[in-house]
Amino acid sequence: MNNWLEDFAYRIEIKWWMFAVAGFTAVLIVLATLSFQAIRVVLTNPVKSLRSE
Results as ranks from 00 to 15, higher is better:
Phe19Ala: 07
Ala20Gln: 06
Val21Asn: 02
Val21Pro: 01
Val21Gln: 03
Ala22Lys: 04
Ala22Leu: 07
Gly23Phe: 09
Gly23Tyr: 03
Gly23Glu: 06
Gly23Trp: 05
Phe24Asp: 02
Phe24Ser: 09
Thr25Met: 04
Thr25Pro: 00
Ala26Asp: 03
Ala26Pro: 00
Ala26Ser: 09
Val27Asp: 10
Val27Lys: 14
Val27Tyr: 14
Leu28Lys: 11
Ile29Pro: 04
Ile29Leu: 15
Ile29Arg: 12
Ile29Ser: 14
Val30Ile: 11
Ala32Ile: 08
Ala32Leu: 10
Ala32Thr: 05
Thr33Asp: 12
Thr33Val: 12
Leu34Asn: 01
Leu34His: 00
Ser35Ala: 14
Ser35His: 10
Phe36Glu: 07
Phe36Ser: 12
Phe36Trp: 09
Gln37Met: 15
Ala38Cys: 07
Ala38Trp: 10
Ala38Met: 09
Ala38Ile: 08
Ala38Glu: 07
Ile39Leu: 14
Ile39His: 11
Ile39Trp: 10
Arg40Tyr: 01
Arg40Ile: 00
Arg40Asn: 04
Arg40Gln: 03
Val41His: 02
Val41Tyr: 03
Val41Asn: 06
Val41Leu: 06
Val42Met: 12
Val42Gly: 11
Val42Leu: 13
Val42Glu: 13
Val42Tyr: 15
Val42Thr: 12
Leu43Ser: 11
Leu43Tyr: 05
Thr44Gly: 04
Thr44Leu: 03
Thr44Cys: 03
Asn45Lys: 14
Asn45Gln: 10
Pro46Asp: 05
Pro46Glu: 07
Pro46Thr: 03
Val47Pro: 00
Val47Arg: 03
Val47Leu: 06
Val47Ser: 02
Val47Asn: 02
Lys48Gly: 04
Ser49Gln: 11
Ser49Val: 08
Leu50Ala: 12
Arg51Glu: 04
Arg51Lys: 07
Ser52Asp: 02
Ser52Tyr: 00
Ser52Glu: 04
Ser52Pro: 00
Ser52Phe: 00
